[in-house]
C-alpha cells in the first residue's frame, strides 16, 4: 500500500522525459548551429575555409569572454549590463598605463583589475542593498562609459607596445591569440561551474535563493564574487580588444552587453536563473558569430545584418522553446 502511493505520486517515466528534454534542448541549439553552417557553406563563398573559420572564432572571442561571465550572472538570476562599458574603460586605462611606460603585463593587468573593481561594486550593491541587478548595472553601464570618456578625454589612445598588441592581434602556431584566451576562459569556467563549491552554489542561488540562504550558503558573498568575475572578464575582454585595435577607445564595446546576453540566452540558460550550462553559451556565441560572418561573406550590408541577427535570436529561442515544451 505504501509502495503503491509512492510510485503513483512519482509519475513513472516523467524524469526520463525530462532528461530527453534536456538533451533535445542542447542538441537543438547545436543543430541550429550546424544547420546555419550547412546553409552558409552553400551560400557564402569560402565560408568553410580554415582561414575563415579561425576568423569567426577570433571575431567572437571577446563577446565569448564576456558571455562566459554573463552566464554565471544570469545563472544566479541576475543580469550585468555594464560589461560593454567596462570593455571601454579597461582598454583606455590599460593602454594609458602602457603609454606611460609601465611594463606591458602590468598594464594589461591594470585593465583586468579595473574590470574586477567595476564588478565588485556591482556585486556589492546587488547583494547588500537588494537593488535589482538591472538597475545597479544600468547605473554602471552609464558611469563606467562616462569614466572612459573622462579619462581618455574622448579620444582613442594609441597603443605602441608590441607585447600588448600581440594579445589582441598576434597568433601562436597560426591560431590567433584571442582564441587561446577564449578557450582558457571556457575551460576554467566549465571547471568552476561543475567542480567547485562556488559553482554549485551559483546554481543553488539561482534555483532558489531563499532555500540557499536557509541552507547556510553565503549568498551575498557568492553574488559579489559572481559579479566580480563578470567584471574581471569584461576587463580582460577590454584588454584583448585594445590589443586588437592597437588603441584604447572610449567608444569601444558598445552593445557588447546585449550580444553577450543574447549568446547566453541562445545557449539555453534560463533568465530566471538556476538552469544553464557554459557549453550552451559557447554554442550561442558561435551562432551569433556565424550569422554575422556568413552575411558579411554574402555581401549583405551591416544594417541588414542587424535586422537578420535580431530576427534569428528570437526565432532560435522560440524554436527551442517549442521543441522543449512539446517534449515535456
Amino acid at each position: 500500500m505504501r509502495g503503491n502511493t509512492q510510485t503513483i505520486s512519482q509519475k513513472p517515466g516523467f524524469h526520463i522525459g525530462n532528461a530527453l528534454n534536456g538533451l533535445w534542448n542542447r542538441l537543438g541549439m547545436i543543430m541550429i548551429l550546424i544547420l546555419l553552417c550547412v546553409v552558409l557553406s552553400f551560400t557564402a563563398p569560402n565560408f568553410l575555409d580554415t582561414a575563415n573559420m579561425l576568423n569567426v572564432l577570433k571575431q567572437v572571442s571577446i563577446i565569448a569572454v564576456l558571455a562566459a561571465g554573463m552566464t554565471i550572472v544570469i545563472l544566479t538570476g541576475g543580469i550585468d549590463l555594464s560589461v560593454g562599458s567596462t570593455v571601454a574603460l579597461s582598454g583606455v586605462i590599460s593602454v594609458m598605463a602602457s603609454s606611460a611606460g609601465v611594463n606591458p603585463f602590468v598594464a594589461m593587468l591594470s585593465g583586468v583589475a579595473v574590470g574586477y573593481a567595476v564588478g565588485l561594486i556591482n556585486g556589492f550593491f546587488t547583494a547588500k542593498t537588494k537593488l535589482p541587478a538591472f538597475i545597479v548595472t544600468l547605473g554602471s553601464f552609464t558611469y563606467v562609459r562616462g569614466l572612459a570618456y573622462v579619462i581618455s578625454g574622448g579620444y582613442p589612445i594609441v597603443l605602441q607596445n608590441e607585447t600588448f598588441k600581440f594579445v589582441g592581434g598576434g597568433a601562436i602556431f597560426g591560431i590567433p591569440t584571442p582564441i587561446y584566451i577564449m578557450l582558457f576562459v571556457y575551460v576554467v569556467m566549465f571547471f568552476i561551474l561543475k567542480y567547485t563549491m562556488f559553482g554549485r552554489h551559483i546554481y543553488a542561488i539561482g534555483g532558489n535563493e531563499e532555500a540557499a540562504r536557509l541552507t547556510g550558503i553565503k549568498v551575498e558573498r557568492s553574488l559579489i564574487n559572481v559579479y566580480s568575475i563578470s567584471g574581471l572578464l569584461a576587463g580582460l575582454g577590454g584588454v584583448v580588444l585594445a590589443g586588437r585595435l592597437y588603441s584604447g577607445q572610449p567608444t569601444a564595446g558598445q552593445m557588447y552587453e546585449l550580444d553577450a546576453i543574447a549568446a547566453v540566452i541562445l545557449g539555453g540558460t534560463s533568465l530566471t536563473g538556476g538552469k544553464g550550462k557554459i557549453q550552451g553559451t559557447i554554442i550561442g556565441v558561435l551562432i551569433m558569430g556565424v550569422i554575422g560572418n556568413g552575411l558579411t561573406l554574402m555581401d549583405v550590408n551591416f544594417y541588414w545584418q542587424l535586422v537578420v541577427k535580431g530576427a534569428v535570436i528570437v526565432a532560435a529561442v522560440l524554436l527551442d522553446r517549442l521543441r522543449g515544451n512539446s517534449a515535456a
Binding site: 563549491m197 554549485r200 543553488a204 534555483g207 531563499e210 532555500a211 541552507t215 550558503i217 538556476g274
Partner: peptide
C-alpha cells in the same frame, strides 16, 4: 519554496549544506 533546489539533483540537494566537508580548497 524554501527547502529544495528543484532543478538540481537529489544528491546535490542532500549535500548542499555540507559541500565544504567534501571539498578540498573549494573543489568538490
Amino acid at each position: 519554496e524554501q527547502g529544495l533546489f528543484l532543478s538540481m539533483s537529489v544528491k546535490e540537494n542532500i549535500l548542499m549544506a555540507e559541500l565544504k566537508k567534501h571539498s578540498k580548497s573549494g573543489i568538490v
